[in-house]
Design a binder for these strands. Structure first.
Length: 491
RNA sequence: CGGGAUGUAGCGCAGCCCGGUAGCGCACUACGUUCGGGACGUAGGGGCCGCAGGUUCGAAUCCUGUCAUCCCGACCA
């Protein structure tokens, strides 16, 4: 049991904060709602970013970069879009400071007011579509497949480390297509990539689905999402992919000539995941001793800790440790040899458990005599003695096993927490006592959705793709329904 | 934006009611002993007590204001 971490069962929110802060992923900053991402946390994000970036490139996308600032007037070009984002925009009004004539430090120079205010981007559709107008003339310019890695700002009322910060890092893909079918195919392709990444790299099972009209992205025709389940039974949207129809093309007048030389507006998609994924990873897998990171995105996959008495033994183990480090590196394993003499082994064990390193190798003279090392896995805490001979291959296999078992564990939990409810009382009781996703019939109206949200704080997370059709009646209104949708309380 | 809390050493806190030499634990520095699950000893260094006014011979402590951060709600990825 950890000395430092709040018990998960006792206070889930505090447990989460402790993991992020004490696992050295991030820190609070001097700026309200903004966090400092520390090297270990950033390494984790880099791992996610690099993996996704390659997946995007493998499907034909290119990276570009658009301005941080957006002219205020751009935002209002698409009606639903401005409606959705207006309440949470940071606005730049001036471009200069000056010394306060009253001698109270420095003030905004009132003479330096901007003619048109600039919005710090909450998302980049508007600036990008304004640009695409000049890039697209013909069907030969399509499809246009662009991604941007950037920071965005959304002035939220309340923030939480990684899950919702005022400024966050993300990627946003913005594509333009010659017809709706192709744009929809792109939207779904990116949803698949997100799901693939979540499940096969983050070991995080997700449900692919489509949002209801009221949960849709501001300006989208359809919003698809991947929904994950956290260990407290709350859902977390881990990624979104939007089919934007011709909304932004019309708002920014982006037309192209087709093969028959007919003019038409282009069809659009946008899709994104953010540093929120780091929060999802923490909440999905960790325990009371700290983080548990899936091997595929753990910055350090294996840590080697030497155990020795006195400097003579230290020298021997340093040499052996370096040798083993090299062997593991050659096998493509991210390994750290911690020969730091300032901390004792027990302290290091606890520390690397806190940081979620998947595999720990401890080696002392006792092991060397037997030509073995002690191998401990973080997820199950299991320890075994393995021969040095052939160790890299064994570790490689072990990392794969851990990855697989972490996914399976999360999947089992998720499956156990999708519950069907056919009556209102049952629905409420499940939400309060069990949590997770509740599969229930819904009459398809925004009004009913709203009432359910007011009464229970549960929202429709999504209508799963390939959802089985089944006649039933709405959990609230009793009106007929053709399929169940997934409700949950969410982050 | 409502409710609650907190600002004192790098971190976590005590001291504040009842004004009088700024303390504890961890971390840090040096030396020594340790090292198979969060070591110990000895000696050290580190402070405008969030900020601004006021009361007082004297303010971390009392009063007024102000700023900031965190937590819980409503809003959202």
């Amino acid at each position: 049991m950890s000395k430092e971490i709040t018990n998960r069962a006792a206070d889930y929110a505090q447990w989460y904060n402790d993991l992020v802060l004490k696992g050295q992923l991030a820190d609070y900053s001097a700026v309200r709602g903004c966090m400092v991402i520390k090297p270990y946390g950033f390494a984790l994000w880099e791992k996610m970013r690099d993996t996704l970036d390659q997946m995007f490139k493998d499907t034909g996308h290119e990276n570009a970069y658009f301005p941080l600032f957006i002219p205020k007037s751009f935002l209002s070009r698409e009606a639903a879009h401005v409606e959705g984002f207006a309440k949470e925009c940071a606005v730049v009004t001036h471009y200069r400071l000056k010394n306060d004539p009253d001698g109270n430090g420095i003030i905004v120079d009132p003479e330096a007011r901007l003619e048109e205010e600039l919005i710090v981007r909450p998302t980049s559709e508007t600036i990008i579509w304004n640009t695409y107008k000049t890039w697209i003339q013909s069907y030969r310019d399509l499809p246009l497949l662009i991604n941007q890695w950037a920071n965005v700002v959304r002035w939220e009322m309340r923030t939480r480390l990684f899950l919702r910060t005022t400024e966050f890092l993300w990627q946003e893909g913005h594509t333009a297509h010659a017809n709706a079918e192709e744009a929809i195919a792109e939207t779904l392709q990116m949803l698949d990539i997100y799901a693939d990444f979540a499940e096969n790299y983050m070991a995080l099972p997700v449900i692919k689905g489509v949002k209801t009209a009221s949960e849709r992205f501001a300006g989208a025709v359809d919003t698809y999402c991947i929904e994950a389940l956290m260990q407290d039974g709350k859902a977390l949207q881990a990624g979104t992919s939007h089919f934007l129809g011709q909304n932004f093309a019309k708002a920014f007048d982006v037309k192209f000539s087709d093969k028959e030389n007919k003019l038409d507006y282009v069809w659009a998609t946008s899709w994104g995941v953010s540093t929120r994924l780091v929060g999802a990873l923490v909440m999905a897998h960790s325990d009371d001793d700290g983080l548990i990171l899936p091997p595929k995105i753990a910055p350090v996959q294996v840590v080697i800790i030497p155990i020795y008495k006195g400097s003579e033994q230290k020298e021997i183990l340093d040499a052996k440790g370096k040798e083993l480090t090299e062997r593991l590196k050659k096998a493509g394993i991210r390994v750290k040899f911690d020969s730091n003499d300032n901390n004792r082994p027990g302290w290091k064990f606890a520390q690397y458990e806190l940081k979620g390193v998947p595999v720990r190798i401890a080696m002392g003279l006792r092991d060397l005599e037997n030509q073995t090392v002690e191998v401990a896995r973080r997820d199950t805490k299991e320890k075994t003695s393995l021969p040095l001979e052939g160790l890299p291959e064994r570790i490689e296999q072990l990392l794969l096993d851990i990855q697989q078992q972490m996914y399976q564990k999360a999947l089992d939990y998720r499956q156990l927490h999708i519950t069907a409810a056919d009556h209102w009382d049952e629905f409420v009781r499940l939400l309060d006592e069990k949590g997770g996703f509740i599969a229930a019939h819904w009459d398809g109206t925004a009004e009913t959705e709203e009432v359910i949200k007011d009464k229970t704080k549960a929202t429709i997370r999504c209508i799963p793709l390939n959802n089985p059709q089944e006649d039933g009646v709405c959990i609230l209104s009793g009106k007929p329904s053709r399929e169940r949708v997934l409700f949950a309380r969410a982050y």
